[in-house]
Computed example of a mutant assay.
Amino acid sequence: MSEELESVKETKQEKGGFKLHHYIAVIGLFGPAIYLFGLRYYQGLLYEFGVDNSSFPIAAHEAYIYAYYATTHIIDALFIEGWAWLTSLSVLEVISIPLLSVGGLYIFAKRRDLPKPSFEGWFGQLLTKLWNYLHWENNKLTQALVLTGLGSYVVLSILYLLIVLGFAWLLIPYAAYSVGKSSAESRIDDYLDPEKGCAALEGKRWGPCKALLSSDGKVMYEGILILHSGNLISFFTREGAFVTTFPPGGVIRNKLSGKP
């Protein structure tokens, strides 16, 4: 008896472990997708700034961080667009949409209480006989047509699903790349705007610009700090984009708002 119980426990454990492995495998598929998402965002960002991404290779954990940045940008854009659409609606539309939705759900929930249509007379009897004759439980041809239709539907559904997944695999990285470019383009436009430039936004303590100072305090570059990785540093200024080695004893300065 004890041996049988132990065998049952081992079988359950094996089944549970098998399911757990499946879940882990599915979750593991998201890792490369998130990495590619963050990498494409990073590449789009550097491309718009005019910097070759080969100068600043990134590790996997950095790509995950950039994927988080890209996701926040997309969520912000969706929220802004959704709020703009909501505020563009009239009061009547705002009230009618939830009322129609609730009313439709109520009718759907109470559909069994609605009177069922009934056919009477010779025409109704004819329809009933025709239905019984063509029903798949009584007609082999109908069974074959139903099975063929269901099989075709399943095959086409799988095909469409693969096509959608293929497009998603192409469009999602492209979306991340576009978001990276858009983020860099917005920063460049603000920087090149004569009224904005390096000035901090109202209520902000720090401006968007930084300066690279040499060991003797001389300003080497001043503008948007794109990246600083290892001994390389990249700036975007009004003259263009620059990638240079970090000077010995150099300092990155970030001025307070309103300071000369």
Rank of each mutant, 00 (worst) to 15 (best):
L170H: 02
E137D: 06
Q125L: 07
G124Y: 09
L165F: 11
Y177E: 05
L213G: 05
S101D: 05
K204R: 10
G121N: 11
L105V: 13
G121W: 12
L156V: 11
G121L: 10
L100H: 06
V164Y: 14
K181S: 14
V146Y: 13
C198F: 04
L99P: 04
L170P: 00
L134Q: 01
L170D: 07
V155H: 08
L165P: 02
Q125A: 10
K110R: 13
G180P: 13
L126T: 12
V146H: 08
A144M: 06
D113P: 00
L127A: 02
K110Y: 01
I97P: 01
W122V: 15
G103R: 00
L126H: 08
K116S: 05
W206N: 05
P194A: 04
I172M: 15
K204C: 12
P117H: 06
D193T: 06
P117L: 08
D190P: 04
R111T: 10
L130P: 01
S157T: 14
E93Q: 11
E93N: 03
G103C: 00
R205C: 02
W169C: 12
K116I: 08
T142F: 01
K204N: 13
G104N: 10
K204A: 15
L114G: 01
L134N: 01
K129T: 11
I97M: 12
N139S: 12
L134I: 03
Y174I: 00
E202W: 05
H135L: 06
S118V: 15
L213E: 10
E120V: 09
A199R: 15
L100Y: 03
Q125V: 03
L105C: 08
W169G: 13
E120L: 06
L201E: 14
E120I: 12
L150I: 15
N138G: 02
A176P: 06
V91Y: 00
E202F: 09
L126N: 11
D190Q: 14
V154S: 05
L100G: 01
A184V: 06
I172H: 09
D113H: 01
W122Y: 05
K196Q: 15
W169D: 12
V94M: 10
L162R: 10
V155N: 09
S90G: 14
L105G: 03
S157M: 10
L171S: 08
S186K: 12
L201A: 14
I188Q: 02
Q125C: 03
L213H: 09
V102M: 11
A168G: 07
V94Y: 02
P208F: 00
S101M: 07
I97Y: 08
L159T: 02
K181L: 08
L130T: 03
L171E: 00
F167N: 12
L171D: 02
L201C: 03
V155D: 13
I107M: 12
L147N: 14
G103V: 04
G203L: 06
S157H: 10
Y191R: 07
S96W: 09
C209K: 01
L145G: 03
K116W: 01
Q143N: 08
I95P: 00
S178H: 08
G151T: 09
V91D: 05
S182R: 04
L171Q: 02
N139A: 09
V155I: 15
V102A: 15
L126K: 13
G180D: 09
